[in-house]
């Protein structure tokens, strides 16, 4: 309660109470992100529990995707981007200079907004990750991994007889599930999803949401979404971002039923955004 009071005073740039009791897998402490001189995130502090779905919501440009991309250091690719603060995954600081981004990203997979399969066959799309990380020793093993991943992504039934067809020839929803299969083929701990359904129709969206719910058993999932219904449907924890600040985080039903911050309330009721 103390903290909530403080938060109101300093406009949200202050730690929020971790919301879920289980041991957090990812802990972010005072994360600031700058694009050149412009500050995109102000002191984000958030705990992300293991084997749960955490959704990041907020209006466009609020920094939720920026935060997501900090978790597997995709922001390293942007020359002008600078990250301060501390993000730990399983107790290890991922911005430690000793950390190898390649092995970090193998542990923290990512699914993007627009389905982006490689212009190769369905098989090659999924096989690429295991192959570059030398996760398999033989062709047969590779085939097993590919089929297992496709089946976990709920795609195997639809494509089992045309694994050699180009991945780009699938429908949008299938392509997105292919990208999920590609991500889980390298056995990550965490899957980051950046608005995975924004380019899909409602049926394909429902299919992906179902899949996210199934994947929760084995993976920790962080999902950025514009759809509050989606956040409500798939996630156990929700974090609301606004103008580079983490306004509020907590159990999903609590955020959607009894939000603490007036900004959260106006957003979920559709008054800002």
């Amino acid at each position: 309660m103390n903290m909530a009071a403080e938060e109101k005073k300093s406009d949200g740039a202050v730690p929020t109470v971790p919301a879920i009791e289980t041991e957090p897998l990812i802990t972010a402490r005072n994360v600031d992100v700058f694009y050149a001189d412009k500050q995109a995130l102000n002191g984000i502090t958030l705990d992300i529990p293991a084997n749960k779905v955490t959704s990041l919501i907020g209006p466009s440009g609020c920094g939720k995707t920026t935060f997501l991309r900090c978790i597997n250091r995709m922001n390293d690719l942007i020359d002008i981007c600078r990250v301060e603060g501390e993000i730990k995954i399983g107790g290890q600081d991922i911005y430690d200079p000793k950390v190898d981004v390649v092995s970090l990203r193998a542990q923290v997979g990512m699914v993007f907004q627009k389905p982006n399969p490689f212009p190769k066959s369905i098989f090659e799309n999924v096989a690429y990750g295991p192959r570059i990380h030398h996760l398999v020793k033989s062709k047969g093993e590779l085939k097993d991994v590919v089929e297992r991943s496709l089946s976990k992504a709920g795609l195997l039934e639809e494509v089992h007889d045309r694994l050699d067809d180009p991945g780009t020839g699938l429908s949008g929803g299938q392509q997105q599930r292919l990208c999920i299969a590609r991500a889980i083929a390298v056995e990550p701990k965490v899957i980051l999803m950046d608005e995975p359904c924004s380019a899909l129709d409602p049926i394909a969206t429902a299919r992906i949401e179902e899949l996210i719910d199934e994947l929760r058993e084995n993976y920790t999932i962080v999902i950025v979404t514009h759809s509050m219904q989606q956040a409500a449907r798939v996630s156990q924890q929700t974090a609301f971002f606004h103008m580079g600040n983490l306004v509020e985080a907590g159990k999903t039903e609590q955020i959607f039923t009894t939000p603490q911050d007036p900004r959260t309330e106006s957003y979920i009721t559709g008054r800002i955004g």
Binding site: N72, L77, V102, I132, V186
Partner: peptide, 23 residues
């Protein structure tokens, strides 16, 4: 080449050289 291809490769842990030369 769309940046999404680069991101796709890097996102599953390809190194920059692998992303460049494989994709």
């Amino acid at each position: 080449v769309p940046p999404s291809i680069r991101e796709a490769a890097l996102g599953i842990g390809a190194s920059q050289v692998q992303a460049a030369f494989h994709h």
